[in-house]
Design a protein around this nucleic acid. Sequence first.
DNA 1: GTCTATATCACGATAGAC
DNA 2: GTCTATCGTGATATAGAC
Lengths: 225, 225
Amino acid sequence: MGANLAVQDSGSSRDRILDVAEELFARRGYSGVGMREVAAEVGLGKSSLFHHFSGKVELYLEVLNRVLERIHVRLRDALAAPGCSAERLDRGIDALIDGLVDEPSSARLLLRALFEDENLPPGSDQLAEHQAGERTLQQILGDIHELIREGVKSGEFRSVSAAHTIQTIIGATAYHFASGEFGRELIGSPLLDPDAVASRRAEVKAMLHHGLVAREPVSGEGGKE
Amino acid sequence: MGANLAVQDSGSSRDRILDVAEELFARRGYSGVGMREVAAEVGLGKSSLFHHFSGKVELYLEVLNRVLERIHVRLRDALAAPGCSAERLDRGIDALIDGLVDEPSSARLLLRALFEDENLPPGSDQLAEHQAGERTLQQILGDIHELIREGVKSGEFRSVSAAHTIQTIIGATAYHFASGEFGRELIGSPLLDPDAVASRRAEVKAMLHHGLVAREPVSGEGGKE
DNA sequence: GTCTATATCACGATAGAC
DNA sequence: GTCTATCGTGATATAGAC
Protein backbone atom coordinates (compact mmCIF):
# COMPACT_ATOMS: atom_id res chain seq x y z
CA MET A 1 0.00 0.00 0.00
CA GLY A 2 2.44 2.68 1.09
CA ALA A 3 4.07 3.81 -2.12
CA ASN A 4 7.41 5.49 -2.05
CA LEU A 5 6.82 9.08 -2.98
CA ALA A 6 10.02 10.84 -3.81
CA VAL A 7 8.99 14.23 -2.50
CA GLN A 8 11.35 16.45 -0.61
CA ASP A 9 10.53 17.40 2.94
CA SER A 10 11.66 20.99 2.50
CA GLY A 11 9.42 23.97 2.00
CA SER A 12 6.30 25.11 3.79
CA SER A 13 3.56 22.71 4.75
CA ARG A 14 1.50 24.17 1.96
CA ASP A 15 4.15 23.42 -0.64
CA ARG A 16 4.72 19.94 0.67
CA ILE A 17 1.01 19.24 0.48
CA LEU A 18 0.95 20.50 -3.10
CA ASP A 19 3.94 18.33 -4.03
CA VAL A 20 2.43 15.19 -2.55
CA ALA A 21 -1.01 15.89 -3.94
CA GLU A 22 0.40 16.51 -7.40
CA GLU A 23 2.02 13.10 -7.56
CA LEU A 24 -0.97 11.29 -6.08
CA PHE A 25 -3.55 13.03 -8.28
CA ALA A 26 -1.36 12.29 -11.31
CA ARG A 27 -1.19 8.62 -10.45
CA ARG A 28 -4.74 7.92 -9.36
CA GLY A 29 -6.87 10.86 -10.34
CA TYR A 30 -9.21 13.03 -8.33
CA SER A 31 -11.63 10.33 -7.23
CA GLY A 32 -8.87 7.84 -6.55
CA VAL A 33 -7.05 9.95 -3.98
CA GLY A 34 -8.29 10.68 -0.47
CA MET A 35 -7.36 13.55 1.76
CA ARG A 36 -6.36 11.00 4.36
CA GLU A 37 -3.73 9.52 2.04
CA VAL A 38 -2.35 12.92 1.11
CA ALA A 39 -2.08 13.89 4.76
CA ALA A 40 -0.42 10.63 5.74
CA GLU A 41 2.17 10.99 2.98
CA VAL A 42 2.96 14.56 4.02
CA GLY A 43 3.12 13.51 7.65
CA LEU A 44 0.17 15.48 8.91
CA GLY A 45 -3.22 14.69 10.28
CA LYS A 46 -6.05 14.78 7.80
CA SER A 47 -7.67 17.81 9.40
CA SER A 48 -4.53 19.90 8.98
CA LEU A 49 -5.05 19.90 5.22
CA PHE A 50 -8.28 21.80 5.66
CA HIS A 51 -6.34 24.56 7.38
CA HIS A 52 -4.30 25.15 4.21
CA PHE A 53 -6.94 24.43 1.58
CA SER A 54 -10.65 24.95 1.98
CA GLY A 55 -11.47 21.57 0.45
CA LYS A 56 -10.36 18.77 -1.82
CA VAL A 57 -11.44 20.52 -5.00
CA GLU A 58 -9.48 23.64 -4.16
CA LEU A 59 -6.40 21.56 -3.44
CA TYR A 60 -6.73 19.76 -6.76
CA LEU A 61 -7.26 22.94 -8.74
CA GLU A 62 -4.24 24.61 -7.17
CA VAL A 63 -2.13 21.59 -8.05
CA LEU A 64 -3.34 21.83 -11.63
CA ASN A 65 -2.68 25.57 -11.81
CA ARG A 66 0.90 25.12 -10.68
CA VAL A 67 1.52 22.57 -13.44
CA LEU A 68 -0.02 24.79 -16.10
CA GLU A 69 2.02 27.77 -14.93
CA ARG A 70 5.26 25.84 -15.20
CA ILE A 71 4.44 24.76 -18.75
CA HIS A 72 3.41 28.25 -19.71
CA VAL A 73 6.66 29.82 -18.53
CA ARG A 74 8.81 27.28 -20.34
CA LEU A 75 6.87 27.55 -23.58
CA ARG A 76 6.65 31.32 -23.55
CA ASP A 77 10.41 31.66 -23.07
CA ALA A 78 11.15 29.09 -25.76
CA LEU A 79 8.93 30.77 -28.33
CA ALA A 80 10.08 34.29 -27.47
CA ALA A 81 13.58 33.82 -28.88
CA PRO A 82 13.92 34.80 -32.54
CA GLY A 83 14.03 32.39 -35.46
CA CYS A 84 12.01 31.10 -38.35
CA SER A 85 8.77 29.26 -37.67
CA ALA A 86 10.34 25.81 -38.02
CA GLU A 87 13.08 26.71 -35.56
CA ARG A 88 10.60 28.09 -33.06
CA LEU A 89 8.44 24.99 -33.52
CA ASP A 90 11.37 22.74 -32.69
CA ARG A 91 12.23 24.86 -29.67
CA GLY A 92 8.61 24.70 -28.53
CA ILE A 93 8.56 20.92 -28.85
CA ASP A 94 11.78 20.75 -26.85
CA ALA A 95 10.37 23.03 -24.17
CA LEU A 96 7.21 20.95 -23.89
CA ILE A 97 9.15 17.71 -23.65
CA ASP A 98 11.63 19.26 -21.21
CA GLY A 99 8.77 20.24 -18.96
CA LEU A 100 7.08 16.86 -19.12
CA VAL A 101 10.38 15.11 -18.39
CA ASP A 102 11.62 17.42 -15.63
CA GLU A 103 8.27 17.26 -13.83
CA PRO A 104 7.24 13.67 -14.34
CA SER A 105 3.77 14.09 -12.86
CA SER A 106 2.77 16.78 -15.32
CA ALA A 107 1.87 14.68 -18.34
CA ARG A 108 -0.49 12.39 -16.47
CA LEU A 109 -2.01 15.18 -14.46
CA LEU A 110 -2.71 17.25 -17.57
CA LEU A 111 -4.12 14.37 -19.57
CA ARG A 112 -6.26 13.26 -16.64
CA ALA A 113 -7.44 16.85 -16.24
CA LEU A 114 -9.20 16.54 -19.61
CA PHE A 115 -11.54 14.00 -18.06
CA GLU A 116 -11.73 15.07 -14.42
CA ASP A 117 -14.40 17.67 -15.08
CA GLU A 118 -17.08 15.06 -14.61
CA ASN A 119 -15.58 13.90 -11.31
CA LEU A 120 -15.41 17.29 -9.66
CA PRO A 121 -18.42 18.41 -7.64
CA PRO A 122 -20.90 20.50 -9.63
CA GLY A 123 -20.07 24.19 -9.71
CA SER A 124 -16.32 23.65 -9.44
CA ASP A 125 -15.84 25.43 -12.75
CA GLN A 126 -16.94 28.66 -11.15
CA LEU A 127 -14.31 28.63 -8.41
CA ALA A 128 -11.59 31.24 -8.62
CA GLU A 129 -8.94 28.51 -8.75
CA HIS A 130 -10.53 27.01 -11.84
CA GLN A 131 -10.68 30.30 -13.69
CA ALA A 132 -7.03 31.02 -12.93
CA GLY A 133 -6.14 27.72 -14.57
CA GLU A 134 -8.34 28.52 -17.54
CA ARG A 135 -6.45 31.75 -18.13
CA THR A 136 -3.09 30.03 -18.00
CA LEU A 137 -4.32 27.35 -20.38
CA GLN A 138 -5.56 29.95 -22.83
CA GLN A 139 -2.16 31.63 -22.77
CA ILE A 140 -0.44 28.34 -23.55
CA LEU A 141 -2.81 27.60 -26.40
CA GLY A 142 -2.56 31.16 -27.67
CA ASP A 143 1.22 30.94 -27.88
CA ILE A 144 1.10 27.73 -29.93
CA HIS A 145 -1.74 28.99 -32.05
CA GLU A 146 0.17 32.14 -32.96
CA LEU A 147 3.26 30.15 -33.89
CA ILE A 148 1.30 27.94 -36.26
CA ARG A 149 -0.64 30.84 -37.70
CA GLU A 150 2.56 32.74 -38.48
CA GLY A 151 4.18 29.69 -40.01
CA VAL A 152 1.20 29.12 -42.28
CA LYS A 153 0.97 32.79 -43.18
CA SER A 154 4.63 32.94 -44.20
CA GLY A 155 4.27 29.76 -46.25
CA GLU A 156 6.76 27.92 -44.08
CA PHE A 157 4.05 25.52 -42.89
CA ARG A 158 1.38 23.83 -44.94
CA SER A 159 -2.06 25.39 -44.63
CA VAL A 160 -3.00 23.20 -41.68
CA SER A 161 -5.75 23.77 -39.17
CA ALA A 162 -4.07 25.35 -36.16
CA ALA A 163 -6.51 23.69 -33.76
CA HIS A 164 -5.97 20.22 -35.18
CA THR A 165 -2.23 20.74 -35.22
CA ILE A 166 -2.31 21.69 -31.54
CA GLN A 167 -4.20 18.48 -30.85
CA THR A 168 -1.61 16.50 -32.78
CA ILE A 169 1.23 18.13 -30.85
CA ILE A 170 -0.42 17.45 -27.49
CA GLY A 171 -1.04 13.88 -28.54
CA ALA A 172 2.56 13.47 -29.65
CA THR A 173 4.01 14.88 -26.42
CA ALA A 174 1.67 14.88 -23.40
CA TYR A 175 -0.11 11.67 -24.34
CA HIS A 176 3.17 9.86 -25.00
CA PHE A 177 4.76 10.77 -21.68
CA ALA A 178 1.52 10.03 -19.86
CA SER A 179 1.16 6.56 -21.32
CA GLY A 180 3.04 4.94 -18.47
CA GLU A 181 3.34 1.20 -18.43
CA PHE A 182 1.68 0.87 -21.83
CA GLY A 183 4.22 3.19 -23.42
CA ARG A 184 7.06 1.55 -21.56
CA GLU A 185 6.21 -1.88 -22.95
CA LEU A 186 5.69 -0.49 -26.42
CA ILE A 187 8.91 1.52 -26.54
CA GLY A 188 10.88 -1.10 -24.66
CA SER A 189 12.32 1.12 -21.94
CA PRO A 190 11.03 3.59 -19.34
CA LEU A 191 9.73 6.65 -21.15
CA LEU A 192 11.92 8.96 -19.08
CA ASP A 193 15.16 7.16 -19.85
CA PRO A 194 17.48 9.64 -21.61
CA ASP A 195 17.65 7.50 -24.73
CA ALA A 196 13.87 7.14 -24.91
CA VAL A 197 13.41 10.89 -24.45
CA ALA A 198 15.93 11.64 -27.18
CA SER A 199 14.20 9.18 -29.49
CA ARG A 200 10.85 10.78 -28.84
CA ARG A 201 12.19 14.25 -29.53
CA ALA A 202 13.69 13.10 -32.84
CA GLU A 203 10.63 11.13 -33.95
CA VAL A 204 8.19 13.93 -33.18
CA LYS A 205 10.25 16.56 -34.93
CA ALA A 206 10.83 14.30 -37.93
CA MET A 207 7.11 13.56 -38.16
CA LEU A 208 6.26 17.24 -38.05
CA HIS A 209 8.94 18.05 -40.64
CA HIS A 210 8.50 15.17 -43.06
CA GLY A 211 5.43 13.13 -42.20
CA LEU A 212 5.52 9.38 -42.32
CA VAL A 213 5.33 8.69 -46.03
CA ALA A 214 8.65 8.98 -47.85
CA ARG A 215 9.22 11.08 -50.93
CA GLU A 216 12.12 11.91 -53.11
CA PRO A 217 14.72 14.12 -51.41
CA VAL A 218 14.25 17.82 -52.07
CA SER A 219 17.31 20.13 -52.14
CA GLY A 220 19.32 17.78 -49.95
CA GLU A 221 16.78 17.71 -47.16
CA GLY A 222 14.52 14.69 -47.60
CA GLY A 223 16.69 11.88 -46.23
CA LYS A 224 17.81 10.88 -42.77
CA GLU A 225 19.40 13.54 -40.62
CA MET B 1 -34.61 -17.15 -29.72
CA GLY B 2 -37.49 -15.01 -30.93
CA ALA B 3 -37.20 -12.02 -33.18
CA ASN B 4 -35.80 -8.89 -31.59
CA LEU B 5 -38.68 -6.47 -31.64
CA ALA B 6 -37.44 -3.94 -29.14
CA VAL B 7 -34.92 -1.47 -30.44
CA GLN B 8 -33.28 -0.38 -27.22
CA ASP B 9 -32.52 -2.27 -24.01
CA SER B 10 -33.34 -5.48 -25.80
CA GLY B 11 -30.30 -7.46 -24.69
CA SER B 12 -29.79 -9.59 -21.65
CA SER B 13 -29.34 -8.01 -18.24
CA ARG B 14 -25.67 -8.75 -18.59
CA ASP B 15 -25.39 -6.80 -21.84
CA ARG B 16 -27.37 -3.90 -20.49
CA ILE B 17 -25.09 -3.75 -17.46
CA LEU B 18 -22.04 -3.74 -19.74
CA ASP B 19 -23.52 -0.96 -21.88
CA VAL B 20 -24.29 1.24 -18.91
CA ALA B 21 -20.98 0.50 -17.19
CA GLU B 22 -19.07 1.30 -20.36
CA GLU B 23 -20.52 4.76 -20.60
CA LEU B 24 -20.13 5.50 -16.90
CA PHE B 25 -16.56 4.20 -16.66
CA ALA B 26 -15.66 6.21 -19.73
CA ARG B 27 -17.06 9.39 -18.23
CA ARG B 28 -15.85 9.15 -14.65
CA GLY B 29 -13.28 6.37 -14.48
CA TYR B 30 -13.04 3.32 -12.29
CA SER B 31 -12.88 5.10 -8.95
CA GLY B 32 -15.52 7.63 -9.92
CA VAL B 33 -18.27 5.13 -10.61
CA GLY B 34 -20.13 3.11 -8.00
CA MET B 35 -21.95 -0.16 -8.44
CA ARG B 36 -25.00 1.54 -7.02
CA GLU B 37 -25.02 4.08 -9.82
CA VAL B 38 -24.59 1.42 -12.49
CA ALA B 39 -27.43 -0.60 -11.05
CA ALA B 40 -29.73 2.38 -10.82
CA GLU B 41 -29.04 3.32 -14.44
CA VAL B 42 -29.78 -0.21 -15.62
CA GLY B 43 -32.90 -0.35 -13.47
CA LEU B 44 -31.79 -3.09 -11.09
CA GLY B 45 -30.97 -3.34 -7.45
CA LYS B 46 -27.33 -3.02 -6.59
CA SER B 47 -27.04 -6.62 -5.42
CA SER B 48 -28.23 -7.96 -8.75
CA LEU B 49 -25.00 -6.81 -10.38
CA PHE B 50 -23.06 -9.22 -8.20
CA HIS B 51 -25.09 -12.07 -9.66
CA HIS B 52 -23.77 -11.28 -13.16
CA PHE B 53 -20.25 -10.16 -12.29
CA SER B 54 -18.23 -11.35 -9.36
CA GLY B 55 -17.10 -7.84 -8.48
CA LYS B 56 -16.47 -4.31 -9.68
CA VAL B 57 -13.04 -5.09 -11.13
CA GLU B 58 -14.35 -7.97 -13.20
CA LEU B 59 -17.14 -5.77 -14.55
CA TYR B 60 -14.68 -3.06 -15.50
CA LEU B 61 -12.28 -5.48 -17.17
CA GLU B 62 -15.06 -7.07 -19.22
CA VAL B 63 -16.16 -3.64 -20.37
CA LEU B 64 -12.60 -2.88 -21.44
CA ASN B 65 -12.25 -6.21 -23.24
CA ARG B 66 -15.37 -5.58 -25.26
CA VAL B 67 -14.05 -2.21 -26.43
CA LEU B 68 -10.68 -3.66 -27.39
CA GLU B 69 -12.35 -6.51 -29.30
CA ARG B 70 -14.40 -4.09 -31.33
CA ILE B 71 -11.35 -2.05 -32.28
CA HIS B 72 -9.40 -5.18 -33.12
CA VAL B 73 -12.05 -6.50 -35.52
CA ARG B 74 -12.37 -3.20 -37.34
CA LEU B 75 -8.64 -2.70 -37.67
CA ARG B 76 -7.90 -6.28 -38.71
CA ASP B 77 -10.52 -6.14 -41.47
CA ALA B 78 -9.32 -2.75 -42.67
CA LEU B 79 -5.69 -3.83 -42.90
CA ALA B 80 -6.50 -7.22 -44.46
CA ALA B 81 -7.62 -5.77 -47.78
CA PRO B 82 -4.83 -5.45 -50.33
CA GLY B 83 -3.04 -2.26 -51.26
CA CYS B 84 0.22 -0.45 -50.83
CA SER B 85 1.36 0.55 -47.36
CA ALA B 86 0.14 4.10 -47.66
CA GLU B 87 -3.30 2.93 -48.75
CA ARG B 88 -3.49 0.45 -45.91
CA LEU B 89 -2.33 3.12 -43.48
CA ASP B 90 -5.12 5.43 -44.58
CA ARG B 91 -7.66 2.61 -44.27
CA GLY B 92 -6.34 1.82 -40.80
CA ILE B 93 -6.67 5.44 -39.73
CA ASP B 94 -10.21 5.48 -41.09
CA ALA B 95 -11.06 2.27 -39.26
CA LEU B 96 -9.69 3.61 -35.99
CA ILE B 97 -11.58 6.86 -36.32
CA ASP B 98 -14.74 5.02 -37.43
CA GLY B 99 -14.58 2.91 -34.29
CA LEU B 100 -13.98 5.86 -31.99
CA VAL B 101 -16.84 7.78 -33.59
CA ASP B 102 -19.37 4.92 -33.80
CA GLU B 103 -18.74 3.95 -30.17
CA PRO B 104 -18.31 7.31 -28.50
CA SER B 105 -17.27 5.88 -25.14
CA SER B 106 -14.31 4.00 -26.56
CA ALA B 107 -11.76 6.79 -26.83
CA ARG B 108 -12.15 7.94 -23.25
CA LEU B 109 -12.31 4.45 -21.87
CA LEU B 110 -9.15 3.42 -23.67
CA LEU B 111 -7.22 6.51 -22.74
CA ARG B 112 -8.35 6.25 -19.14
CA ALA B 113 -7.35 2.59 -19.15
CA LEU B 114 -3.72 3.68 -19.52
CA PHE B 115 -3.91 5.19 -16.04
CA GLU B 116 -6.45 3.00 -14.28
CA ASP B 117 -3.89 0.36 -13.42
CA GLU B 118 -3.06 2.19 -10.23
CA ASN B 119 -6.70 2.46 -9.23
CA LEU B 120 -7.55 -1.20 -9.55
CA PRO B 121 -7.09 -3.38 -6.45
CA PRO B 122 -3.69 -5.06 -6.28
CA GLY B 123 -3.53 -8.35 -8.15
CA SER B 124 -6.10 -7.34 -10.74
CA ASP B 125 -3.54 -7.85 -13.47
CA GLN B 126 -3.59 -11.57 -12.78
CA LEU B 127 -7.31 -12.01 -13.33
CA ALA B 128 -8.38 -13.95 -16.41
CA GLU B 129 -10.35 -10.94 -17.64
CA HIS B 130 -7.22 -8.80 -17.62
CA GLN B 131 -5.16 -11.28 -19.54
CA ALA B 132 -7.84 -11.62 -22.21
CA GLY B 133 -7.65 -7.86 -22.74
CA GLU B 134 -3.88 -8.01 -22.90
CA ARG B 135 -4.04 -10.53 -25.72
CA THR B 136 -6.48 -8.44 -27.72
CA LEU B 137 -4.32 -5.36 -27.20
CA GLN B 138 -1.24 -7.19 -28.41
CA GLN B 139 -3.10 -8.24 -31.54
CA ILE B 140 -4.06 -4.64 -32.25
CA LEU B 141 -0.53 -3.41 -31.72
CA GLY B 142 0.87 -6.28 -33.75
CA ASP B 143 -1.31 -5.40 -36.73
CA ILE B 144 -0.18 -1.78 -36.72
CA HIS B 145 3.40 -2.72 -36.07
CA GLU B 146 3.45 -5.05 -39.05
CA LEU B 147 1.97 -2.41 -41.31
CA ILE B 148 4.64 0.11 -40.38
CA ARG B 149 7.41 -2.44 -40.61
CA GLU B 150 6.37 -3.45 -44.11
CA GLY B 151 6.07 0.14 -45.24
CA VAL B 152 9.54 0.93 -43.96
CA LYS B 153 11.00 -2.22 -45.45
CA SER B 154 9.56 -1.48 -48.88
CA GLY B 155 10.86 2.10 -48.69
CA GLU B 156 7.37 3.51 -48.86
CA PHE B 157 7.70 4.94 -45.34
CA ARG B 158 10.65 6.74 -43.86
CA SER B 159 12.76 4.64 -41.51
CA VAL B 160 10.70 5.59 -38.48
CA SER B 161 10.53 3.80 -35.18
CA ALA B 162 7.41 1.63 -35.32
CA ALA B 163 6.78 2.00 -31.60
CA HIS B 164 7.00 5.79 -31.68
CA THR B 165 4.82 5.93 -34.76
CA ILE B 166 2.18 3.85 -33.01
CA GLN B 167 2.28 6.31 -30.12
CA THR B 168 1.88 9.20 -32.55
CA ILE B 169 -1.08 7.51 -34.23
CA ILE B 170 -2.80 6.79 -30.92
CA GLY B 171 -2.17 10.37 -29.85
CA ALA B 172 -3.60 11.68 -33.11
CA THR B 173 -6.77 9.57 -32.93
CA ALA B 174 -7.67 8.21 -29.49
CA TYR B 175 -6.38 11.23 -27.60
CA HIS B 176 -8.14 13.65 -29.90
CA PHE B 177 -11.55 12.00 -29.62
CA ALA B 178 -11.11 11.57 -25.88
CA SER B 179 -10.30 15.22 -25.28
CA GLY B 180 -13.92 16.12 -24.66
CA GLU B 181 -14.74 19.64 -23.68
CA PHE B 182 -11.14 20.79 -24.14
CA GLY B 183 -11.11 19.52 -27.70
CA ARG B 184 -14.54 20.92 -28.37
CA GLU B 185 -13.49 24.44 -27.37
CA LEU B 186 -10.25 24.17 -29.29
CA ILE B 187 -11.83 22.86 -32.52
CA GLY B 188 -14.89 25.02 -32.17
CA SER B 189 -17.52 22.31 -32.53
CA PRO B 190 -18.37 18.96 -30.91
CA LEU B 191 -15.67 16.48 -31.86
CA LEU B 192 -18.24 14.00 -33.17
CA ASP B 193 -19.90 16.45 -35.53
CA PRO B 194 -19.56 15.09 -39.07
CA ASP B 195 -17.57 18.11 -40.21
CA ALA B 196 -15.21 17.89 -37.27
CA VAL B 197 -14.68 14.17 -37.86
CA ALA B 198 -13.98 14.76 -41.54
CA SER B 199 -11.52 17.51 -40.67
CA ARG B 200 -9.71 15.28 -38.22
CA ARG B 201 -9.44 12.49 -40.78
CA ALA B 202 -7.96 14.84 -43.34
CA GLU B 203 -5.57 16.56 -40.95
CA VAL B 204 -4.22 13.31 -39.53
CA LYS B 205 -3.70 11.75 -42.94
CA ALA B 206 -2.09 14.91 -44.30
CA MET B 207 0.24 15.09 -41.30
CA LEU B 208 1.27 11.48 -41.78
CA HIS B 209 1.77 11.99 -45.50
CA HIS B 210 3.43 15.38 -45.57
CA GLY B 211 4.31 16.50 -42.04
CA LEU B 212 3.76 20.06 -40.99
CA VAL B 213 6.64 21.88 -42.65
CA ALA B 214 6.07 22.74 -46.32
CA ARG B 215 8.47 21.84 -49.07
CA GLU B 216 8.66 22.29 -52.80
CA PRO B 217 6.24 20.03 -54.71
CA VAL B 218 7.78 16.78 -55.90
CA SER B 219 6.48 15.10 -59.07
CA GLY B 220 3.10 16.76 -58.73
CA GLU B 221 2.47 15.43 -55.25
CA GLY B 222 3.88 17.82 -52.68
CA GLY B 223 1.36 20.67 -52.76
CA LYS B 224 -2.25 21.01 -51.74
CA GLU B 225 -4.54 18.24 -52.83
C1' DG C 1 -32.65 -13.38 -11.05
C1' DT C 2 -34.01 -9.87 -8.23
C1' DC C 3 -34.88 -8.16 -3.99
C1' DT C 4 -34.17 -6.15 1.20
C1' DA C 5 -31.15 -5.82 4.85
C1' DT C 6 -26.81 -5.59 6.68
C1' DA C 7 -21.65 -5.67 7.53
C1' DT C 8 -17.50 -3.17 7.20
C1' DC C 9 -14.98 0.40 5.80
C1' DA C 10 -13.36 4.94 3.75
C1' DC C 11 -14.79 9.30 2.28
C1' DG C 12 -14.95 14.77 2.87
C1' DA C 13 -15.68 17.89 6.22
C1' DT C 14 -16.29 20.12 10.93
C1' DA C 15 -15.71 21.23 16.02
C1' DG C 16 -12.89 22.35 19.43
C1' DA C 17 -8.73 21.43 22.57
C1' DC C 18 -3.94 22.82 22.76
C1' DG D 1 -0.86 25.09 12.91
C1' DT D 2 -1.72 20.49 14.36
C1' DC D 3 -4.24 17.41 16.81
C1' DT D 4 -8.37 13.93 18.33
C1' DA D 5 -12.98 12.87 17.86
C1' DT D 6 -17.00 12.71 15.33
C1' DC D 7 -20.77 13.42 11.88
C1' DG D 8 -23.19 11.95 7.82
C1' DT D 9 -22.76 9.68 3.59
C1' DG D 10 -21.64 6.33 0.27
C1' DA D 11 -18.42 2.65 -1.04
C1' DT D 12 -17.98 -2.78 -2.08
C1' DA D 13 -19.65 -6.87 -0.90
C1' DT D 14 -22.50 -10.61 1.40
C1' DA D 15 -26.64 -13.21 3.36
C1' DG D 16 -30.77 -14.89 2.64
C1' DA D 17 -35.92 -14.38 1.43
C1' DC D 18 -38.88 -14.86 -2.67
